[in-house]
Amino acid sequence: MRETAIPRLGVGLAYQPALRPFIEQKRDSFDYLEVVPDILWTDLGAGRTPRYVDDEEGLSFLRRMAAGRPIIPHGIGLSIGTAHRFNRDQLGQIEKWFSWFDFPWHSDHLAYNLAEHGADEINAGVTIPLPRDRETLECLAPRVAEVQSRLAVPFLLENNVYFFDMPGQEMTDAEFLNALCEETGCGLLLDLHNIYCNSRNHGADPFRLLDEIDLSRVVELHVAGGMEHEGFYLDAHSGPLPEEVWALLDYALPRCPNLGGVTFELLGSWYETVGSEGLETELRGLRALWNRHQPAPAPARMEAVA
């Protein structure tokens, strides 16, 4: 076992290129920037050397913003649940980012987007849910271990949003997340808006789910707004938090003893609609809630299976 200090960072903002003016002008409104690193490089594909081409202009912006503000990578390209191969080339990119930004944790999605297609692969461009089965955990465990062996900071996986469910799964959402953390030592990036979406679309009680999840494994929370579409509620990152997500956050914050931060996600194309003031209002509300429930300055410690 090893222990890693989790700094209590506070309120984070998910980076989008369209938010750059806000990020530059309102730096005091957030405590860290979360960045999908995949949008700051181009992946030329497996077998190409070099495979990745970094976006130097985007990185230059981030380096300027990194002065006094942690940069936390939140990947979309690892596809850690892909059964036929592990996209480990991506880990080299994350290691490079670690040397540049020295982040206290990093994360990706508990899902897959890459799948076999004849002799090639397809990339669905969406996070496809994994069956909540023992076989899935057995696929994930060595991969999480490999990530942890290559980067000496906690690695988190984000609970997925899903619009269809599969029959005959061996575990509930909570049982699966708890087993994942227990058996692999990874932490959780708990997306409360995903929980809200799933509860609305599938009729579950989100507070009960929070009671069932081992919240000591949660290092980061995500919050966002969404929208209705053809009878479903979408995790669209399209605006302010719904009241129900504020309530979930209010419930979760004091119950997560090892929390490092809560991140607001807004898609760049909605920034004009929400506006600078609207975004600032959301961040201010998050900080007020954070300060009410997470006042302890002492760094949290997270145990991870070595």
Partner: peptide, 10 residues
């Protein structure tokens, strides 16, 4: 599992 994931993605 690879065949299942491939079919689900398709």
């Amino acid at each position: 599992a690879p065949a299942f994931q491939s079919a689900l993605a398709r």
